[in-house]
Each structure stands twice: as C-alpha cells, then as structure tokens.
Design a binder for these strands. Structure first.
Length: 513
DNA sequence: AACATCGTCAACCGCAATTCT
DNA sequence: CAGAATTGCGGTTGACGATGT
C-alpha cells in the first residue's frame, strides 16, 4: 500500500477536510461517533491527521484517546487514534522487514505463547503486535500452502514446558503487569515468584483437575473442535480465570465425543492417534500446536502432512526492503535495535537467503529469549526502568508540532486539561540542523526529538528540528513555532497516564525526559 | 496488455478487561 | 457497587502492489 502524500490521500479518501464531507462519499468510510451526531472518519490516515495526533500526544501524553476528538477536532475515534499511534506514530518504531533474528524470536515465542501478539511485541523492540500478527499469518499461509510445518521439529518439549505461557497463558492483566514490573526492575527472582504464583493460581482454579495438564488437554480439545480457519495452527489457550470460575461446564467439554472428533480421520487424515512419549521432542508443527499442551496429553497424528519430519525451507526473509512512503513510513532502519541485534549471533547465511531463517530455526538456540538471546534487550528494559523511575520526579517539556490550522486545537493557551502552555521563541531562529533528517519520516523526526534528549541514539540533538521538519512535511513550514507544555502531574491525570500507563515497554520513555 | 493470484499492510470490528464516575 | 467509559487485544477484512499466466 502506498500513500505518498496528503493530497493523494484526500483524493482517494474523502475526509473531514474535504468539503464533500457531507456527501455520502461512503458510509463505508465514515462512522458515527458514539452518542454524537458528529461524523468520525475511517480509513487510511492522512499526514495531517498524523500531525494532529502527534501534537496531541506530545501535549497530553498517551491515553485518554477519546479526548483527541474533543480537544483537537480530529475526526477519529479514540480507538483509531490509539491504534494509529501505537502502530505508526509512536517513536522508536522499527519498520521494514523482520530480521532473521526477529523471525526466529517470533517463531520461538509463538511456540511458547500462541497468538499473544501483544506480548510478543513487548519483546521485540520497535515492533507492533499488528506487524507480528501479519507476519505470522503470512507465514501460516505460505507454509500451509507448501504443506510445511509451522515450527521446526527441533523446538523441544522441555522448552515449551518451561515456558511461562505453558503454565499460565491467561494470567490476569494485573499479574502480567506485575511480571512486567519485575522484568523492568531486573529482578528475575521476583519474576520467578510471580510465575510461581501464577502456577498456583492456575491450579487453584481447577479443583477438579488432578493437575494442570488436565486443563491443557481439555483446552486443546476445545480448540481442536473449533472452526478457526487456522485451527490447525493455533495453539490453544487456557480459559480465562473468569471463564473457569463461571463455567462449571467447562470440563465436561472434555468429553469423549470431542476426543472422538479429534481422533477422527476427518481431522487427521490417515492419522492414527497416539500418545506422544513425554520424553520425545515433539514437533509442534502446525498443530493445534501442541505448543501449550502437556506433552503427555498431546495426541500426535502420525502421518498428518502437518507433521513432516523434515523441514523444507520456504520462509522468505526479506533483505533490504526499503520503502519511503506515507503514512506508514515503511523503511529499513538502522536503530538501536540493530545495535541490540549485534549482540546476538547472526544465523548462518545459506546460499538462498530465503532459506536461512528456517535453517536457523531448525537449530535454534536455547529458548531463553529474554535471558540469552538478547542481553541488549534486557539492558534496554533495565535502562527504561531506571528512566521510568526518574520520570516520576520530573516535569515534561515537549515541543509542540505546528499543524495545519483548520483542525488545530487552536491556540496554545491553557488547554482543557488545565495545563499551561507557554509559547517560546520562533523555531527558525534557533534551529541549527546538526544532521540531515529525512523529513518524509515524521516518526524519525519524532523519535529523534525524544531520543536525543537521552543521548541514547543520537539521531539528532536539536528537538526543534523535528518540529521544523515535520512542519515542512505537513506543508506549513513557513511559520514554525515551538511551544512547550508543562505537564502538571497533580492536575492532569491524562498527563500522568502518559507515564504511568505506558504499555510500550520497548519504547523509550517518551514522557520521562 | 489484461487478468488472476498472491503477499503485504493498515485499519476496522467485536469482545473482554480495566478504570472511572 | 453498578453501570458507563475507556483501553487493549486478537481476528478479520479490504486495498494495493508485485508477480505470474
């Protein structure tokens, strides 16, 4: 998809900026905001909208997305704003093709977690859950078409067993946050404790089950009986605690009927069900990948085409895929992640680069993703934790990006949140570009502004240049002002939310500067 | 050149969890 | 404490470019 500019966007996607708004230019493209008569736009974002949203976030921080429409006039629902920010505008996003290391991590994590895209994204700096999900779905299609297993046969049961997800896939978010906090604090022991608690929690939910493995089998059967188009690939997940608590009939679902279906030849052609020896190294190929099942409860059909012994190699890691386009800003980027990447051994390159990933997957390193495969990542987390801590004591002063007037929130007087916005000098009077920025990449500009103040990545050290460049991008470069907003922690829950509720664990602490 | 198919990506939707009032 | 509002997640869809026929 290529949206190369605002004008182009407008041409193809009638928006509120068009006077044709009132025309029925597409119910398809317009939605009604809840409880209001106002119209909210749908469809691809324009760079103007991006600018508005960026400005909003810089002013108010992340969160309170529903206020974006109210405060800026941006005709997007909060949900859409959040998504746009998360997937495209937030700083430090790493776009472009996945590296081999990333692909390997994704495969490993999927074997451990199943379709927990958000959690995977937490461990892939700069990557979004959406990206990972898309990648995985593509991979599924590709491999399915080729009749290949999703996973290498070398992903060992022991690794899966030791997986935290194997133990508790659906821990509560509170627990997840605890775990995350532990990670951020670099306290593996604490993390272990959390895991232990989670295990206890999981078992406590199953008074009728002899052990957790019962639950896995049950869940697996339910999953296998489902009708997802990718059913044969999706590792089952545990029922949520709520489901477990509310549904006493959950376990009856592990009925012989369902088991029969699982065993039926319709499901696994020519597959004679058999118990997998616990000690064997299963091939969590496609399967309702037994990824989350207790090995002793996993039924592996012998001859299913999805359980091939060998691994034909068809994954296609892309090299050097570079795009420079709006509004997605796809590009190949050398970033801190590459630095992180260098800390991990590169997989051997085969003759055919398309094969290399899977070749590498075939002989995966130990599955200790956090611990072994990327100490750099851990360092990043630790670094972020430190900054996060200090952030609570600091004020935020962020430059505001000038945006086209028609939808600008207006002046910079005290905003609706009560924050005092103090205008400062004209930007062009102080701007001294120290490096050439790619103004077609507002995300880079944005990131540079944030990151340079930490001297982390040194993209550019003058934050004002970002505003300037972005203003150019937005077509309004002639009048550039640099405004700063002080975020009063006491007066604005929104502002605090920017720090406290930030879920982008792999993102530099934007509001902690 | 026209058409079909595939791959990629962005964005939407529905649902569940969480937070707010 | 209940209901409303907000947020987050995962699944799905549709647009579009690339490639093949």
């Amino acid at each position: 998809m290529s949206y190369t500019g605002e004008s182009d966007d407008r041409m193809h996607h009638p928006s509120i900026y068009d006077e044709s708004l009132s025309s029925p230019a597409g119910d398809n493209n317009i939605c009604r905001s809840i409880g209001k008569a106002s119209v909210l736009k749908k469809g691809p974002w324009t760079s103007t909208e991006d600018g508005i949203l960026i400005n909003y976030v810089r002013k108010h921080g992340e969160g309170n997305w529903s206020a974006v429409h109210k405060l800026t006039g941006l005709a997007r629902c909060g949900k859409s704003c959040r998504l746009r920010w998360a997937n495209h505008l937030r700083p430090n996003l790493k776009k472009g093709a996945f590296s081999q290391d990333e692909e390997r991590l994704i495969v490993q994590m999927h074997a451990k977690m199943g379709n927990k895209w958000a959690r995977m994204a937490e461990r892939l700096p700069g990557r979004t859950d959406n990206e990972i999900k898309n990648y995985w779905n593509t991979r599924i299609k590709r491999r399915r078409r080729a009749g290949l297993p999703l996973y290498s046969p070398d992903i060992h049961v022991e690794d899966l067993e030791s997986s935290e997800e194997y133990i508790t896939t659906n821990i509560t978010r509170v627990d997840r946050r605890r775990r995350q906090d532990c990670l951020l604090l670099g306290n593996p022991k604490a993390n272990d404790d959390v895991l232990f608690d989670d295990l206890n929690f999981a078992t406590s939910l199953l008074p009728g089950a002899s052990d957790v493995s019962d639950m896995f089998e049950c869940n697996m059967l339910v999953t296998v009986a489902s009708s997802s188009p990718y059913e044969s690939y999706m590792p089952p997940i545990l029922p949520s605690p709520k489901q477990l608590q509310e549904s006493g009939s959950l376990f009856p679902m592990c009925s012989s009927n369902i088991k029969q279906e699982l065993h039926s030849p319709e499901r696994f052609q020519n597959a004679a069900p058999q118990k997998s020896p616990r000690s064997c190294s299963i091939s969590p190929c496609d399967p309702p990948p037994y990824g989350n099942q207790h090995p002793s409860d996993v039924l592996i059909p012998d001859n299913s085409h999805t359980f091939t012994d060998g691994m034909l190699l068809t994954s296609k890691p892309l090299f050097g895929a570079v795009k420079l386009e709006l509004p997605s800003f796809q590009y190949s980027e050398t970033s801190e992640f590459d630095q992180w990447k260098t800390t991990t051994p590169s997989p051997p390159h085969s003759e055919d680069p398309l094969d290399s990933v899977d070749a590498y997957i075939q002989s995966p390193p130990p599955l200790e993703i956090e611990e072994s495969s990327d100490t750099g990542l851990l360092d990043m987390l630790l670094h972020e934790a430190k900054i996060k801590t200090s952030a609570k004591r600091s004020m935020v002063a962020l430059p505001e990006i000038p945006i086209p007037t028609q939808l600008s929130a207006g002046d910079n007087s005290p905003d609706s949140a009560g924050n005092v916005v103090v205008k400062t000098e004209e930007l062009d009077q102080v701007w001294e570009p120290k490096r050439v920025l790619d103004v077609t990449r507002p995300d880079v500009l944005l990131a540079s502004s944030w990151l340079d103040q930490q001297s982390c990545f040194g993209i550019v050290s003058d934050s004002s240049s970002m505003s300037d460049a972005l203003a150019l991008l937005l077509g309004g470069g002639e009048h550039i002002e640099n405004s700063y907003v002080t975020v009063e922690s006491s007066s604005s829950g929104q502002a605090q939310q920017g720090v406290g509720s930030c879920t982008w664990t792999n993102m530099p602490p934007v509001w902690s500067l």
